[in-house]
Simulated scan of single mutants.
Amino acid sequence: MPRITLKITPLHPDGSVCTHAVRPSGKPRDPLSGCPGRQGYAVECSACGRVGTPHTLRVLAEPAQSAHRDSHKTAPAPANR
């Protein structure tokens, strides 16, 4: 079974991934970069894609990341006697 990874990705207001350097306020450090700023964070699963709705703060996306990770855990195999 392939390994499933979950990451939290920063988003622009239009929902695209933001890879620009930004200030703590979410505004771009370089005003000439063309970045509209960061507006939210989404949980991305390597198996399921984007999970749930975007969150306004990264700290709010972390519980959703943990909950989705737990949903992928399989039941333990029965012990052989």
Rank of each mutant, 00 (worst) to 15 (best):
H12I: 03
V59D: 12
K27D: 15
A21Q: 12
H72V: 04
E62C: 06
R81N: 10
K73W: 04
P13G: 11
P78E: 07
P76M: 03
Q65W: 01
G26S: 09
C35I: 05
R23M: 10
S25E: 13
P36W: 01
T5G: 01
L57G: 10
D30Y: 01
H12W: 02
P28C: 09
H12A: 03
R81P: 11
H55W: 06
H68S: 11
P36G: 04
S16P: 08
C18D: 13
S71V: 04
T56E: 12
P10H: 05
G15C: 09
T19C: 02
Q39L: 13
G49D: 05
A64S: 12
P2K: 11
A42Q: 15
C45Y: 00
P24V: 02
Q39Y: 02
S16T: 15
A75D: 13
P36S: 02
L32C: 01
E62K: 11
T9D: 13
I4E: 09
L60D: 14
G49A: 03
P78N: 07
T9F: 10
P76R: 10
P63H: 07
A67M: 12
R81V: 08
D30E: 13
L11C: 04
M1G: 14
A79L: 15
T5R: 13
R23E: 12
T19P: 00
V59G: 13
D30H: 03
V51K: 05
D30R: 08
H68I: 02
T56Q: 11
I4L: 06
S46V: 09
E62H: 13
G26Y: 05
H55T: 05
T19M: 07
L57H: 15
S71A: 15
E62D: 10
Y41T: 00
L60Y: 07
H20G: 00
T53Y: 03
Q65G: 04
T19W: 02
V51I: 14
Q65F: 02
V43D: 09
R23G: 00
N80Y: 01
G15Y: 02
K7Y: 08
P28E: 10
L11H: 06
T56M: 03
L6A: 04
L11M: 09
G52V: 00
P78G: 10
I8M: 06
T53W: 01
K27Y: 02
L32R: 14
T19N: 12
M1L: 07
P13Y: 04
T5N: 09
Q39N: 08
